[in-house]
Design a protein around this nucleic acid. Sequence first.
DNA 1: CTTCAGATGCTCT
DNA 2: GAGCATCTGAAGA
Length: 212
Amino acid sequence: MEPLPRTFYDRDTLTVARALLGQLLVRTLDDGTRLACQITETEAYIGRLDKACHAYGYRRTPRTETLFARPGTAYLYLIYGIYHCLNCITEPEGEPAGVLIRGAVPVEGEDIIAKNRFDRKMEELTSAQRKNLLNGPGKLCQGLALTRAQNGLDLTDATGCLFICPGPSPAPEEIRAGKRIGIDYAQEAVDFPWRFWYEPSFRKGRRGRVLF
DNA sequence: CTTCAGATGCTCT
DNA sequence: GAGCATCTGAAGA
């Protein structure tokens, strides 16, 4: 499995946010276990003009330093004292911007993901828990055992413990866009339609039929 | 399905 | 000291 190249990330952030949908996030744990999931929801953050971005107006602090790194770098930070969020750095180095990975569906290692999330075996989970394993930025990091320890990793490194490789992309007309979540403080930027998502085709309806 | 409170600790002022 | 790119479980519609 060949990771997406740095040129994939070295583009306009909105383009990358849409292009990341469907791609496969691969996480290798310290013991060698491999987890994988397909990205279903993203948000773009662009420091140059976006009050919701930690590096708005090129603000440089110890935390935001990673946002200025070269494209294809992982930016992880602690939020609300409990959870972590994962971003992919975009645009040329020095231009602070990135894509928040807001949601995914498990592809490999579901049992470990269930253990990381609920400390239970897969078959012990309620159906609601099974459907909500990775559908949120904090849940995704908890399920994949990601913390600030992974901040700064190179997502294009096939030998690293966190990278992204090509997966089945949704058709452009399947991609939905809307306002971003949880940025009420960001004034005019709260209305920017910089959140993107799609419904994976193998998701099932109430009566077990595959929808598309 | 919805709202709501509370948990928790780091980051920057 | 204030605020935060969130989640859970409980309770109500």
